[in-house]
Design a binder for these strands. Sequence first.
DNA 1: TTCATTTGACCGCG
DNA 2: CGCGGTCAAATGAA
Length: 312
Amino acid sequence: MELQCLKRKKASYPFAQGAVMGPASGSCSPRGGVFGLSPTAPRHSCKRRKDKLTRVKHTLTPYFDGHLWRKYGQKVIKDAPYPRLYFRCSYREDRHCLASKLVQQVTHDDPPLYEVTYKHEHTCNAAPVPAPDIEADALPTDTSDAALVLRFGSSGDGSGSNHHGGAAMQLQEQQQYHRPVLHPSPFVMTNNNFDGSNSSQLHAFFPSHVVPPVVSSCPPFPIIESSPTPPTTSWSPSFPIVESTPTVVPSTDHEGDMFSPLDWDSFMYDLDDHSHFSSDHGQFPGNTFSWETNDGSPLAHLRKGIKAEGLF
DNA sequence: TTCATTTGACCGCG
DNA sequence: CGCGGTCAAATGAA
């Protein structure tokens, strides 16, 4: 697959026709070693201890850090109530980026708290914006009936198709280990399918000082073309929004600014412990998203680095 | 057909 | 020898 076979051991793979869950025993076993070490590094150099390239962070948004990750493993940890998820940089192969992280839920809180252990810095230099590049665009059709588009895009390097990229999986992951959320978060993120049905509704958390803009209306419309650089996703609300949200704190200087990956990254870090995107970033083919308050009022999130134009 | 995720196996560290 | 990190075939979605 992606790593060279250096040696193999044990060929117990049950290659019976009916084998459903094929244990990958017949595979190569380079066994790159402990988390964070290069898989091609000599085994003897592997140490199961954290090095200086490791940093731990507790966050409510473990998957939402401005980088694109690919999950490569999941492990139930002894005495841990939740499995540990292993991710590495999606550009690991392309750009030999060794950055990786593991995510483990540590609390039952709502929203739950996660411990994220990062290993190695990103060397991919990929525009770190698989994190939601949120854009708000007004449809040109009718100004009085304009629509809000939340575009969670990326300015990646343009390689690969990523039609259902890792981020999408990250959503699945989080949903998988999230209990159904009905906590009093300020906003709700609605996941809408093309057919207009709501497939899920997730709460989002924002810091108290972040106040979304007013949106007057939002008629259904199909997903919008994504940005030229993958991985990219366009989210848009596909349901009518009837009311606007009165409370608007002047977000001042940053509205309309082009999204800066770094800004977003730091922004999200700032939001840790104060905010939460329940669905995280990612790609949701066939889905659209919108933001709204608990009472259904439509919202969009505007803040530093988030491009918003048109309707606001 | 491609590609990311799933998941049991593998394997070294402690 | 147990634990945990990683691999890679199988799986499934697009």
